[in-house]
């Protein structure tokens, strides 16, 4: 190699260029291999895409890995994947058992902040507008008292679909007719939660809660969506009061986070 780049000629360029093309080919081949593995590895229950995520195939290239969604989340539910995720490196995910999306932000701020709309706000916006129109058109609706934001945010929240919760009958305390007393995840658990029934302005640590339930129903009382997503009902035999997941479930994963069994007995399966 010559010492001064000014003296390099076409031959030097072709020589180094062919090595560069070779290196690019290796990178390309590696990407194809990782791409195949990535497709097989998804979906996973500890790796939910944030609300509004578009198809995984488009998501992978549309996400520019800036982390704006991570920064805006008030409960730090969204994290960036490490290099062990292969091509998913730097993409956002939610591990609900560690910190679920509890809708503390009220208005899907991660979706609104995404610069490339891989968290796509359009369906939520449409849903919100439709709900406000519906509320206004309701017979007897007093437009001076209808708060469009309240209506809109509930509709947007309910339009989220990250996954669906499934109950494991073998380990669920309610299925065993057991109650629950105390703190579900221990004193070291850092997760935050904004309980729907408390009408709190922001989320607070789960470890500060103290429950006392005759039959365990934490997943039901803490569900941010409420009775459209999960209800308590009598089992077919009529002997048990068990949680029952409905179509309104958004897959936010709060139930998975609060479940007191060692392995969560209610788990969100990604869609």
């Amino acid at each position: 190699m010559k010492s001064n780049p000014n003296e390099m000629n076409r031959r030097d360029f072709l020589k180094a260029g062919s090595i560069a093309v070779g290196a690019l080919a290796v990178v390309g081949a590696g990407t194809f291999v990782l791409d195949k593995n990535a497709a097989e590895a998804m979906p996973r229950e500890d790796f939910l895409r944030p609300p509004g995520a578009i198809d995984e195939e488009d998501f992978l290239y549309g996400c520019i890995k800036c982390g704006l969604c991570v920064q805006i989340c008030p409960v730090d539910a969204i994290k960036l994947a490490g290099a062990d995720e292969g091509l998913g490196y730097g993409t956002p995910y939610i591990a609900p058992r560690i910190q679920a999306c509890d809708f503390s932000c009220d208005a899907l701020q991660c979706v609104e902040t995404c610069p490339t709309a891989v968290l796509d706000f359009r369906p939520f916006k449409e849903e919100g507008v439709r709900a406000v129109e519906k509320a206004a058109a309701e017979p007897g609706a007093d437009l001076s008292t209808v708060n469009p934001f309240e209506v809109q945010k509930v509709a947007m929240k309910e339009a989220v679909l990250m996954g669906k919760a499934h109950v494991n009958r073998n380990t669920c305390l309610a299925h065993k007719k057991e109650g629950f007393k105390g703190n579900p995840r221990g004193d070291d658990f850092e997760g935050l939660l904004r309980s729907p029934y408390k009408n709190a302005a922001s989320a607070s640590p789960l470890k500060a809660r103290d429950y006392d339930r005759e039959i365990c129903d934490l997943c039901i009382i803490e569900c941010p969506i409420g009775e459209k997503a999960i209800i308590q009902r009598r089992s077919r035999s009529g002997k048990k009061l068990i949680p029952h997941v409905l179509d309104g479930c958004t897959g936010c994963g709060v139930c998975q986070m609060v479940c007191p069994t060692a392995e969560p007995s209610i788990v969100v399966e990604p869609i």
Binding site: M1, N4, M8, D12, A20, L24
Partner: peptide, 18 residues
């Protein structure tokens, strides 16, 4: 070790193609 400075544009085009 020095190389041709035009390599960056090989990589630029190469990465867009990839």
């Amino acid at each position: 070790h020095q190389y041709h400075i035009g390599l960056r544009f090989v990589f630029l085009v190469g990465f867009v193609l990839l």
